[in-house]
Design a protein around this nucleic acid. Structure first.
Lengths: 303, 303
DNA sequence: GGGGTTGATGCATCATGCGCATCAATAAAG
DNA sequence: CTTTATTGATGCGCATGATGCATCAACCCC
């Protein structure tokens, strides 16, 4: 684009076109009358035609000046609006925020933060998507989401994260199950149990981590059944076909047909993290991270 | 209107937003990379928010910068168009030209100049109006026309004029009229003739001037009849009800039912002038005046 | 004819923007 | 891990451009 001439003094011209008096206009613009005169001369010179006819007693717009005034009054208003529009986005007061979550964040962490964020930033369009952890990593890499609640930890130089929770894992059994007779349940108690888990499409990351935890104790999990959604899974457990393992955050949502007991072992915990790309500096994302972080700082998980 | 910030460097930003590399953009703009860096910093400072995120290896638009880029690309195109539009008007290649004429200019002076003007300025909208001389003076004063062909002279400090013709007056008689027997006709020969003239509504100025001419010779015109249009007037003359007086420019248009003879007296002439307001400096008017003037200079009226 | 106001211009001063040199940061290659 | 090349940012000195002041000629009014 070749440089457009005279843009710097258009506003000066518009002010003069309204007033049609150099001294009064110079006063309004807080500069000397001679400086105004020169600005207008410079503008006319760069444009190559006259905008005003003037004697020492009379200033009037030429026809070209009238047209230029009308066109550029509109343009300056549009320019002001373009600044305001961009500023709204810059201040996080507009734009889109795309958040993904997996099941463990769905009951409290994500809804709580989203609610507080929307109260603080009503103009931001918040878009939520349920995506399991591995899918979130792909979506982040592809720029399809701004941040995601996933199972942690996740260390990568391209991503930043904050840990939002670290939860005890619970075994979920049918009512009157023999495991319930024990005062405490250890991982070893589960070595001879039929285990029902979500299938790999839904629970990929969580299953890898469960395998890691049990392998660390020399235990091979005996996965007897897989289910593709939570209701089906709990139904299988309630029917006595096996037990499953859930983090604390979901325990309150499992209904009355099952019993739960914590697994007593320091390593058997699940942590939920919020992850985003280091390069993503969108102000609405920064605002969200700040709000999500506050919940963590304000309520110690042991309380 | 409060001053809008940052307008001076918008074009610089647009160039950088396309390239997303400071050094390559600086090369395109023919300035040093450091100068470009400072321009962008200045723009962001005056706007109060960031348009670009950048490290030493990567430059990208912020969301606000993206919005600002989209809005201002349109605005800069519109600004360029506003310059071209105003320039067309400034160069007389657009706009309106309003010309009035009275009968004596209708046959040659006005049509000839209009034809040449339109060839030179095809984009100017030429508007013609038949208005008698006094009406033209009112229309000029009211800014309703740009220039007018009228009977001259006309001296006034608010108006400029050029004389386009000075024509002999002719007496128009019925065929076989006794005046035709004379070798020459003087104003005195008309003192006992029935005179037929256009009514005052149509011929006001011309009639004042005829009265002035005959009064200068001590002759009172005997206006026997008035007609409100040319055909009716000529019909009355052809029917033998009197004679009339016309300037040379109309003689070729009078038909074969009448005879014409020049009035032999140096003061019995009619001049046609083009008049415009001194304050009207519209370029298309100046162009027209120049073209109307050329005919006068290029062709001596005796040729 | 005198007074007041206007837009334009000469001049000296000051502020701004520029190019050059250099820096730290970063990515790629060996 | 080190070296090289390239990038955007910064310090500095200089030249240029914009400004205010003083003054002018033009013009209108009394």
């Amino acid at each position: 684009m070749p440089p457009l001439p005279g843009l710097d003094n258009v506003q000066t011209f518009l002010a003069l076109a309204q007033e049609l008096n150099f001294r009064r206009t110079a006063d309004r613009l807080h500069l000397d009358q001679s400086a105004l005169s020169r600005r207008i001369q410079k503008l006319e010179q760069t444009l190559g035609f006259r905008l005003l006819d003037r004697t020492t007693r009379e200033v009037s717009l030429t026809e070209a000046g009238q047209r230029f005034y009308e066109d550029n009054s509109q343009l300056m208003r549009a320019y002001g609006e373009s600044i305001r529009s961009a500023r709204r986005i810059a201040e996080g007061k507009a734009g889109i925020l795309r958040i993904a979550y997996m099941a463990f964040a769905a009951t409290e962490l994500m809804p709580s933060a989203i609610a507080r964020f929307r109260r603080a930033h009503p103009h931001v369009d918040v878009r939520l998507q349920y995506i399991r952890t591995q899918g979130q990593k792909i979506a982040l890499a592809n720029g399809e989401i701004d941040a995601g609640y996933m199972i942690g930890p996740f260390d990568h130089r391209d991503y930043q994260s904050i840990q939002l929770s670290s939860e005890t894992l619970y075994v979920v059994t049918p009512r009157n199950h023999p495991l319930l007779l024990r005062p405490t349940i250890t991982p070893a108690d589960l070595s001879d149990q039929d285990i029902i888990l979500g299938d790999m499409r839904e629970w990929e990351e969580y299953r890898w981590r469960l395998n890691d935890m049990f392998s660390g104790e020399g235990i091979a999990l005996r996965v007897a059944l897989e289910a593709s959604n939570t209701l089906a899974l709990l139904g299988l457990v309630a029917a006595g076909l096996g037990v499953t393992i859930y983090p604390e955050s979901l325990i309150g949502f499992l209904g009355r047909n099952v019993e739960v007991r914590p697994i007593m072992h320091p390593a058997f915990r699940s942590s939920t993290i919020l992850v985003w790309r280091r390069a993503n500096r969108a102000p609405q994302l920064q605002g969200f991270v700040q709000i999500a972080r506050q919940r963590v700082s304000g309520s110690p998980s042991g309380a």
